[in-house]
């Protein structure tokens, strides 16, 4: 690799020979994913003969997947013909993800997992209380006010004003229906 390219690319150790190591992994994921989708497309039943070959449901997705795989094959070599742009991408991704980002992903998955059981209303209260805590907010009074006021505001606007139905979720077990 030339000195100029080394200067442009902050993560030169990511380049091995002709290819960019991380981009090779990215391309592999795309190619494997594409191959899997292509295999799935081969399993689509054929259209009745009267409709002809072109109307088969697999033709278009297969064309698209092949194009995507061809493009994915270029990705590891992009460093050779556009080093400045790849250097910019490397600058962003060379910083490893902070623990808070992983915690946020786990929190999001957890909240969505329990949302169906809790129902949108309770999920909003839980979100408003948990999110600032996980993100390091120490002012508990502020959290308490926010976790009550904001979900109520959303409920008022979307349920009362816009008529959006909120599934009761867990509330149906807590609030006894009145006859």
């Amino acid at each position: 690799m030339s000195k100029q390219k080394q200067k442009l690319n902050p993560a030169t150790n990511l380049v091995a020979g002709l290819v960019h190591k991380i981009d090779l992994i990215v391309a592999s994921i795309l190619i494997i994913g594409g191959a899997f989708m292509y295999y799935e497309a081969t399993l689509f039943p054929a259209a009745p003969n009267i409709l002809g070959d072109t109307l088969n449901a697999d033709i278009f997705p297969k064309m698209l997947i092949v194009l995507m795989i061809i493009l994915a094959c270029i990705i590891p070599f992009e460093i050779r013909f556009m080093p400045e742009k790849i250097a910019k991408i490397d600058k962003d991704r060379s910083v490893s993800l902070e623990p808070i980002t992983w915690k946020t992903i786990v929190l999001l998955i957890t909240l969505v997992s329990v949302a169906e059981f809790l129902g949108p209303m309770v999920t909003m209260f839980v979100t408003a209380a948990c999110f600032p805590l996980v993100w390091g907010e120490k002012n508990y009074v502020r959290i308490a006010i926010y976790s009550v006021a904001f979900p109520l505001f959303v409920y008022f606007v979307f349920n009362k004003l816009l008529g959006l139905f909120f599934d009761p979720g867990v509330l149906q077990y807590l609030v006894k229906p009145t006859n």
């Binding site: 999001l108 909240l111 969505v112 949302a115 949108p120 999920t123 909003m124 979100t127 408003a128 999110f131 600032p132 993100w135 390091g136 907010e137 502020r142 926010y146 904001f150 979900p151 959303v154 979307f158 959006l164």
Partner: peptide, 17 residues
């Protein structure tokens, strides 16, 4: 710490709605 949880709540309600 309060702005983005609000965005998540809107996203949640929006995609559910």
């Amino acid at each position: 710490r309060f702005l983005w949880p609000s965005v998540f709540i809107f996203s949640l309600i929006g995609s559910y709605a």
